[in-house]
Nucleic acid binder design. Sequence first.
RNA 1: GGGGUUAUAGCUCAGUUGGUCAGAGCGUUACGUUGACAUCGUAAAGGUCGAUGGUUCGAGCCCAUUUAACCCCACCA
Length: 908
Amino acid sequence: MEAKQEFTMEKVFQPNQVEGRIYDMWESSGAFAPVKDESKKPFVIVMPPPNITGQLHIGHALDEMPQDVLIRYHRMKGDPTLWVPGTDHAAIATEVKVVDALRKEGLTKQSIGREKFLERTWAWKKEYGGRIVRQLRKLGVSCDWNRERFTMDEGLSRAVRETFVRLYEKDLIYRGYRMINWCPCCQTSLSDAEVEYETQNGHFWHLLYPVKETGELLELATTRPETMLGDTAVAINPEDPRYAHLHGCHVILPLVNKEIPIVCDEHADMEKGTGVVKITPAHDPNDFEVGKRHNLPMVRVFTYDGHMTGAEEAKEVAELIASGRATEDEPQVLDCGKYAGMTTMEARKAIVDDLTALNLLKSVEPLSHEVGTCYRCHTTLEPMVSKQWFVRMEPLARPACQVVYDKKLRFIPERFEKTYLNWMENTRDWCISRQLWWGHRIPAFYCDDCGETFVTREDITTCPKCGKPVHQDEDVLDTWFSSALWPFSTLGWPEQTEDFKYYYPNTVLSCGYDIIFFWLARMVFSGIEQTGECPFEVALMHGIVRDAQGRKMSKSLGNGIDPIEVIDKYGTDALRFSLVMGVAPGSDIRMSDEKLESFRNFANKIWNASRFVLMNLQDFEPQGIDVSKLSLADKWILTKYQEAVRGVTENLENYDLGLAATKLYDFVWSSFCDWYIEMAKQGLYAEEGDVKRTTQEVLLHVLTGTLKLLHPYMPFITEEVYGYLPGAEGMLIKAQWPTCNPEYDFAEDAARMEGIMDVIRAVRNLRAEMNVQPGRKATLMLKPHAGWAEALQGAEGFFKRLANASGIQILDAKAANPDKSASAVAEPCELFMPLGELVDVQKELKRLAKDLKGLQGEILRAVNMLANPGFLGKAPAHLVEAEKEKLATNRGLLEKLKARIEEMESLK
RNA sequence: GGGGUUAUAGCUCAGUUGGUCAGAGCGUUACGUUGACAUCGUAAAGGUCGAUGGUUCGAGCCCAUUUAACCCCACCA
C-alpha cells in the first residue's frame, strides 16, 4: 500500500491545480479501458463523434456528461465498461473550411486539383482534429482513448464501402434523376434532413398566360417567377368547372413564346388561388411528380451555381442527349437568352419587369413563407433535378420502426419515440451523394466505353465486361452515411472481431434531440440492416444549452459560453454538475454564472467537509464500525446515507441522472454537513476514546461512500479527496460502487433523531423570533411527551451545540410551566425558554396564535379525512392508521398549546 | 396542415408509478467572527401548482376542453 498523501488541503478548493494531474493519472493507469469479463454483460457507449473542424463548445460538455456519469457508474459497479471516442470527418463542414482557407491564399479547390486538395484537408485534420480531442479531456471524460476512431480511418472506410456494396447488391442503393435540394453556395446536393426551413418574406406573383385556342388569359400565381422559363405545362383540376372548356388546350408561355399543354391533375387545388398552377418539373418537387404523370419534358433553367442557363450549356446537354449517352431522364437545358448568366434573383426582377411591360403581371401580394436553406451556410436552396445516389428507405425503415414498437429500443424520455417514428414512418429516399471531395468516395465505376456501372469492394481500373478503362464516380458520401455505422464500425466490423462480438450491440446511445434524424435514426436502420441487431438498447436524449435568457447560443448573438473559460473560472466539476443536476432528460437547460457559482460553492463545500473530517482523522487507523457503540446521531446519518445509496443507485439505473444529482446535493449539504458534522463535533471532542473513535469511523465511512456516489458527477474533486483518506486504496475511479449494509439501517432511531432535530429547529426559531442575542445562552426546559425523556436527556450536548443552550432541564409532566418564557410544542416535548423580562407577552401570544392556527388546520384536515367513509373504506390501511396516529399526536399538541396560550393570557 | 413540449415561490427549475405536507438554488429580509467552509451559518417572508370541467375516498401528478409561449416535422403553387 502506497503512503497516503500528506495532509495539505488548502482552505479553498483549487480545481485547476488538481484536474490536469488527476486526468493524466487516470489515463496513464489504464483506468479508462474496459476490464473484459465474458461472464458479464458489458456496458457500452459510443461517443457521438465531434467534427474535426469543431472547437469545444458547451454543447459538447452537455453531450458528454450523461455518458461519463453512466460510464463511471457502471465501471464502479463492476461491469465491463467501454466508452469509444472518436471524431467525424464532417464532409461538407470541413470542406467549406478548407475552401475558405484556400480562398485566402487566392486559390480554389479546382485550381489545385482533387489530390492536392485532399492533402491539404488531411493536413488540416491533423492540425485541428487533435484539438477537440485534447479539449474533451478537460471535461474529464473517461473514454478509452486507445480505441479512438475517425470516420475516415482505414477500417471505418472499409465498413463504409462494405455497407455501400451490400446495399447496392440488394438494390437498396440506386442512382437516378430525382428532385433534390441543391445548395448553390456549397455546390452540392443535400439530403432532406439537411434542409433548414426559415420564414422569409417574399411575394406572390400573379401571372397571366394566354391560352392559344381561346385567347383568354389564364391567371396563376407563383413565388418564384424566374422558374417560369422552365415551365412545360399548366395544370388545372379535372373536376374544376371553371376550366372544363380548356381540357386539351395549350398556353403560350410568355417570354419564351413556347406552346405548352394544359393538363388535368389532382395536384391543382381548386380551393387555392385561381386553381391554376404552372408546372416546372425540373425545379419543383410537386411539379416533378406532375411531370412524371403526364410525361412532360423537364427543362432546367438554373445552373448549379445559381445562375440562369445559357446557350453553351444548352447546346452541350442537347448534344449529350442527342448522342444517346445521357440517360433519358436527363433534363433539357434552356438557353435563357437575355436572362442567361444572371443570378436567379436578378432574373426574377428582370422577368417580372418584362412581364409587367407585357401586361402579363396581374398583381403582386406580399407573402411570408417557409423557404428551405442549407444547414451549413443558410443559403436558400434550389430544388433541382439531378442525378444522385439514393438509399431506398422503405425496406430499411420498416424494421427500424419495429424495434421501437417492440420496445427493443427504448427512448428516454419516451416522447422522442414519437418524434422518431413520425420521421421513420414517413421518410423518403435518402440522397447520399455529395458533390464534394472530402469524404468517402462513392465506390462506383463507370466504363468509359460501354457505360456500364460497377460497384465494387476493391477499386477497378478496367471494365470487367469490355475491358476498357473505367472512371470512378466523382462524388463522396454524405458524412452521415459513415457515422450511421459508428456503433459497429468502431468495433472492427465488418470483420467479426472479438470486440465486435463482445461489445455489440451497445447499451446506450446518448445524444441531443437535434440529431435524431441525422444520426440516431440512421444508426438504427443501418445497424439492423448490416448486423441484424438494433445497435443499442436505450436512446438517452438531452436538449441544448441556452443562455441565461433562454436563447439559443449563436455566433451572431455572441452569447456562447466557452466551456474552457468556465472550467478555468469555476472548475470542471462545477460545470459538470451544473449540466446535470435537476435536469430532466430531454429538456433544454439554461446556463448562467449564478448557477455555475452555486455549484462551485458546492464543490467547495465537499472540499471543506472532507477537510474537516480529515483534520480529525490524524493518526487514526480505521478498524470498522462497532454497531453497539453508535450514537443516535451516528445511526441517523448511517440511515440517511444508506437511503442516499439506494436512491442514487436506483435513479442511475433508471437514467434519472438529474434526480440522483439532486439527492446527492441535498444529502451532502443538508444531512451530512449541516447536521451530522455539527453533531459529530461533540463526539470528536469527547473525553471517551470509544466515542471519538466511533464518530471517526462513521465520518470516514459516510464520507468515503459519499465520495463514491459523487464521483460519476464530480470526478476530480472526489478523486483528489479520496487520495487523502486513510484506508482508501487505489484510485477512486476504480473503486467499488457503495452497497448498503442492513446493519446500518436504523429507522426508529433515525426518527428519534429527527424529533430532536425538530426541537432544535423550534428553539432556533424561538430565538430568532424573540431577537435573542447569540451570546445569550438560555437553559431549555423540556417537558417530554411519553417515551421521549431519555432521548431528550441524551441530546443535551446537541442542544448546547446547535441550539445555543446553556443546558437543558427535563420537567415532570405535571410540573408547572416556567414563567416568563417563550415556548413551543413539538412532537417530542413542550419546550420553554426562560427569557425573563425579554419575553414580550403580546408578541409571544401572537406567535403562539400562529402555531395554533397551523395545528388546527392540520387537525381539521385529518378529521375530515377520517370522517370520509370513502377514505376509510378504500385507502390502504397503513395510510389510515398513520393519519389516525398523526391526528392523535396533533390533538395532544393542540391541548398543550391551548393551555400555554391561556397561561400567557393570564400574564397580560 | 400534422406532431410535440412547457405553464409550480420575484427569477431558473425539481417533484420518479395520484396518498400527509408543494420543494431546491439564486434573489429578498433579519441575525451571526461558536475550533471545515463568509465560495459559510441560523431563521423568515413568498405559490389557491395557467384556466374550466371531469375521473377518484384522495390530483401539481390521470382525462377532456381552453388560453399562452416555444419547438419539430410537412411539397403547398
